[in-house]
Design a protein around this nucleic acid. Structure first.
Length: 311
DNA sequence: AATTTGCCCAACCGCAGTACG
DNA sequence: TCGTACTGCGGTTGGGCAAAT
């Protein structure tokens, strides 16, 4: 048995002594057609047999993977929705790297896709923040904390005269952050988006007090709201500079009824995002965390205004 | 404009579990 | 009961592409 790089379509051809060549690498259109056609006529399963009878010079495993991850009709293409992302967070905190199990809860999504999503977008961020064990209790809150940090940066960007909060050790109110009731929104209903956070938000208040008064309402957290909040806990102790790096995660869109709402494009008048204090809890919007290029998002943030008034 | 860098994702690999003769 | 083949899962790799330099 030998391995050789084949020139056509850069695929690798594995040639055995009996001159039977196994193709590897990217699938061609013809191969896709052969596989789809065969399965349409004979059904799935018996992958090794399928690989032989269909005329594909692929292993059964390769055929199965291609079918399940790409060719199967119900496979969804494109970016994960906000709802799917949050569901992944929740399920991963519950089950860990059980990708196939998680994928079962996301119709049309493959374990491979979810795994890739996690690795490229979430795990990377967690490692950067030295939060390597994402199965540890609180990782979901960590992820949501990223969302909140986005909100803080948002407020900063919308208040040009505000004091810089970079490099200040600002404790983030992770504990008690709860999932918003996104799943209960009905089409056509007015959602109340909630994030609850326990603790002292006076540092945020201080930041606000240093802001120009005309931008005073631009923060996600108003002074009045943070006035009587009990002491803050600091479960992870991230500095804002850490989170600014984490900020590269694409938390740039407001979750609304399961749809991603671009900061610039949604109809703000149509939104009724209530921000209320309930027993020391503060409600904040939830952000999408994927799908758009980081730089583009940053530009969008920089150019958009997103004040409490608008909310 | 050319080159480098980093990201994303399709595909591969190895292992474990299951089915079957 | 055992051995083999098949299937499924999770981890890893590498190519393509776009952004950055």
């Amino acid at each position: 048995m030998r391995l050789a790089m084949s020139t056509p379509s850069k695929s690798i051809i594995c040639s055995s002594e009996d001159d039977y060549e196994l193709r590897r690498g990217p699938w061609s259109v013809e191969e896709d057609y052969l596989l789809t056609h065969y399965i349409a006529n004979h059904g799935e399963g018996r992958w090794n047999l399928l690989a032989i009878r269909s005329g594909l010079r692929r292993t059964g495993k390769s055929c199965r993977l291609r079918w399940l991850n790409y060719l199967k009709p119900n496979v969804k293409r494109g970016n994960l929705t906000s709802e799917e992302q949050l569901l992944i967070f929740e399920l991963h905190s519950k089950w860990g790297n059980r990708w196939s199990k998680i994928a079962q809860q996301l119709p049309g999504r493959t374990d491979n896709e979810i795994k890739n999503y996690w690795r490229t977008r979430i795990q990377k961020q967690a490692i950067y923040a030295k939060f390597e064990d994402h199965r540890r209790a609180g990782f979901v809150e960590f992820v949501k904390g990223l969302q909140m940090t986005r909100c803080l940066h948002k407020s900063q960007e919308s208040s040009p005269s505000a004091m810089s909060i970079q490099d200040q050790a600002i404790p983030l109110p992770f504990d008690g952050v709860t999932v918003p009731h996104y799943s209960s929104f009905g089409i056509g209903t007015t959602p109340t988006i909630q994030i609850t956070c326990h603790g002292d938000l006076n540092h945020l208040n201080q930041h606000e007090q240093n802001s120009d008064s005309e931008h005073h309402n631009s923060s996600c957290i108003s002074s009045s709201e943070s006035a009587n909040i009990p002491n803050m806990s600091q479960p992870f102790g991230y500095t804002t500079s850490q989170f600014q790096a984490l900020d590269n995660c694409d938390f740039g869109m407001c979750l609304y009824d399961g749809y991603s709402i671009d900061n610039n494009s949604y109809d703000r008048d149509a939104l009724n995002l209530t921000t209320t204090m309930v027993a020391g809890n503060l409600e904040l919007p939830v952000f999408d965390c994927q799908t758009l290029e980081t730089n583009r998002l940053n530009k969008e943030f920089a150019s958009s205004t997103w004040s409490m008034d608008e909310l």
